Simulated assay, not measured.
Amino acid sequence: MSTQAEDDVIAQASSDRVPVTPASVEAFGAVPEADRAVAGRTRQFDTARLSKDFAEQGAFLYMEDFLAPEVTAQLVHSARALLDEVNRNYLPGHKQGGSVSRHTIDRLAPFIAELYRSKELIGWLEKLSGDKLMVSPPDDPHAYALYYYTRPGDHIGWHYDTSYYDGRRYTLLLGVVDESSCRLDYELHTKNPDVPDVPGSVQIPPGGLVFFDGDKLRHRITPAAANEFRVSLTFEYVTDPNMRPWRRFISNMKDAIAYFGFRQVFRQMIQRKGAGQ
């Protein structure tokens, strides 16, 4: 973190940072039980209507207010606590920003992993998508990850969340912190020749949700300005957890170069393989 502007933003954002451990949450408040918190929210929604909207928009849904306030507060707390773990990357013309992979989250922010595996959440997403959803394999660093936009120009260019799995991969994007002008720009129906493309743009507030089929939605995050701070959380669910070896290699290289670093991606993979021997 080299620029003075970024240092100022990070210092302000992390001023209340404490380790996310059972002993430390007493002053912050009890960590909510994920299934109960999700169920308390989803039962308030017209899921049948939302599922229809999802289908009509080509496997895309935006909700400004999804998470329970106590869940959002815990995610904000975790995101600020993990600032020192951020791995920054720069790909000219495409991407600039920071990331924290599921492997680090597993060690330091277990509530995020609990929320990702919530049966209530997965069941509700299945009703929206009409697909049977499974969690990503344990060696996938993208299964759940935090993305940080803390320097001027942090962004990600137009892309699809391409699935390297044999089946489909759905992305659940949750707003965590948004002290920025960044927007999610998107284009619907780009893979459907029978329907005109529909552009859109949203600014995702803390607790907001975007759910989509990664292979169908063309999207980007617009650049951050000076002294801005944004954190988002993504969950990836699959319809088939199998991946062919050559696709696994491509996926690992992409994750190592563009997101989490070679040490995170390949060390975790080697450790998991060794434990299974």
Rank of each mutant, 00 (worst) to 15 (best):
V210I: 10
S14P: 05
E56G: 00
G98A: 02
Q271W: 05
E70A: 11
S78E: 14
V71Q: 07
R272W: 03
L115R: 06
M243D: 02
S118D: 01
T42K: 11
L108K: 15
Y90V: 14
I105S: 05
S15K: 11
T239S: 07
Q57G: 11
V202H: 10
K254A: 07
I10A: 09
M253K: 15
R218V: 04
P137M: 04
G153R: 01
E187Y: 01
R168T: 12
A224S: 15
T222H: 05
E56H: 03
Y160I: 14
S2T: 13
A226T: 06
S118N: 01
A30N: 08
L75T: 08
S24H: 10
F66R: 03
E64R: 13
D7C: 13
L82M: 15
K132W: 02
E228W: 02
F211N: 00
A68D: 08
A258R: 15
F54W: 14
W246N: 12
S99M: 08
R88F: 15
A13F: 03
V195P: 03
D240V: 01
D139Y: 12
G130F: 03
L50M: 05
Q203D: 00
V135C: 12
Q57W: 06
M63T: 03
A81F: 06
W246A: 09
V265F: 01
I156Y: 03
V176L: 10
G130R: 06
T239G: 09
L184P: 01
G123K: 00
A81I: 06
A13K: 04
G153D: 00
R247Q: 15
V210C: 09
K273A: 12
Q4L: 13
A48P: 07
F45N: 06
S99T: 15
F262A: 15
P193R: 00
F45P: 06
R17Q: 10
R267G: 07
S232L: 09
A145Y: 05
C182N: 15
V31C: 07
V198K: 08
D53A: 10
A143W: 00
L233I: 05
T171Y: 05
I156C: 02
L209V: 04
A30D: 09
V176I: 13
A27K: 15
E70D: 14
I221A: 13
V177W: 10
G97L: 02
A11F: 10
F28I: 14
G130E: 01
E26L: 09
C182F: 09
G157D: 09
P205Y: 02
D140L: 08
T104L: 12
D185L: 10
Q277A: 11
I257R: 15
P137H: 04
D166P: 07
Q268E: 15
E56Q: 12
R117S: 13
V202S: 04
G167H: 05
T42W: 08
D197F: 08
G153L: 01
S129K: 05
S101A: 07
D46N: 07
L125I: 08
T21D: 05
A34V: 03
M63R: 12
I257A: 14
V38W: 01
P137N: 08
L121V: 00
F235I: 02
H94K: 13
G208V: 10
H103K: 13
V135S: 08
V100Q: 00
K119T: 08
K191L: 12
T150N: 07
R248S: 14
N192T: 09
T239P: 05
P19A: 11
R43W: 08
D215W: 00
T162E: 07
R247T: 04
F249C: 07
S14T: 14
S163I: 02
I257P: 11
N89A: 15
